[in-house]
Write a protein that binds this DNA or RNA. Structure first.
Length: 262
DNA sequence: ATGGCTTATCAAATAAGA
């Protein structure tokens, strides 16, 4: 089974690229982030025509997460237990969506950005990650053999060589010690990085800013990850980052991350 | 010294991204 995750930065703008990507790489399950639309605006027919079932949650032009699957899409869940909310709304943002696809519990996750170290959004980001860690640790405590994939845009740079120049980020989010600790806590809870062993750095990234010619200059960040429970990690045959998708007109600022499971 | 782009939105400036 081939599982991919991709922050598409608007599914309506990117639908053709996503469809081409699915076919080019023969993808079975695709988790997407930043669809930037409501459910009624999602171009569902574009993907059902290709044989995929579609799950999506989006409330506005912000956030939005989705899962496409051609190997089954069962028990769709919006949000994770304990997920913190943002702002004055009582409902949480559209940042987490799960479905069971061929026996794998797939979570499409869009971790809050944090904005700046002094912003309340940064606190929200850390609380969001801590809640996710607690809930995800519970799944493995209940069933150590669970096949769980936590995939998406984590908005964290775990290591110094996951960004082209650490000095540029000395006062920025994404590289701070609390964020890295929050990411590591999920790993320590039993969720391994499924991709890094097959796509080691340095200089291997999943995101390049649209500005400053960051992509042609190879100045990017590794912030999109596929983490997996032990039972899932044992099935990984290979993985890669599709850097080609960042090229050309109409590219998302993120590249897809692909994992092959036996 | 700084920003440079791209997306969405009651359509022109603003918010957000990382």
């Amino acid at each position: 089974m081939r599982l991919a995750t991709w922050n598409v930065n608007s599914i309506r703008t990117r639908a053709d690229r996503v469809a081409a990507f699915l076919e080019r790489h023969d993808v079975d399950v695709l988790a997407m982030q930043e669809t930037k639309c409501r459910d009624d605006q999602f171009p569902e027919a574009r993907f059902t025509a290709l044989g995929y079932e579609v799950a999506h949650v989006g409330y506005s032009q912000w956030n939005g997460v989705s899962i496409l699957s051609r190997v089954g899409l069962e028990d769709v869940t919006v949000g994770f237990p304990g997920q913190p909310c943002w702002g004055e709304d009582t409902s949480c943002e559209a940042r987490a969506l799960a479905a069971t696809c061929a026996g794998v519990r797939v979570w499409s996750l869009y971790v809050p950005n944090g904005r700046t170290l002094a912003d309340p959004h940064y606190t929200y980001k850390l609380e969001w990650l801590a809640a996710l860690r607690g809930t995800a640790a519970g799944w493995l405590a209940d069933d150590p053999a669970a096949q769980v994939a936590l995939v998406g845009d984590w908005n964290i740079v775990p290591q110094d060589d996951d960004v082209w120049d650490m000095s540029v980020f000395s006062t920025s989010t994404h590289v701070s010690a609390p964020e890295r600790a929050a990411f590591q806590a999920v790993v320590d809870a039993g969720y391994a990085d499924l991709v890094r062993p097959h796509a080691p750095g340095p200089g291997v990234y999943t995101y390049w800013d649209y500005t400053q010619l960051r992509f042609p200059r190879r100045e990017g960040m590794r912030i999109d990850f596929a983490l997996g429970s032990p039972a899932l990690a044992a099935r990984v045959d290979g993985a890669f980052i599709d850097r080609e998708e960042r090229k050309g007109k109409g590219a998302s600022d993120h590249a897809p991350v692909v994992v092959d499971l036996s």
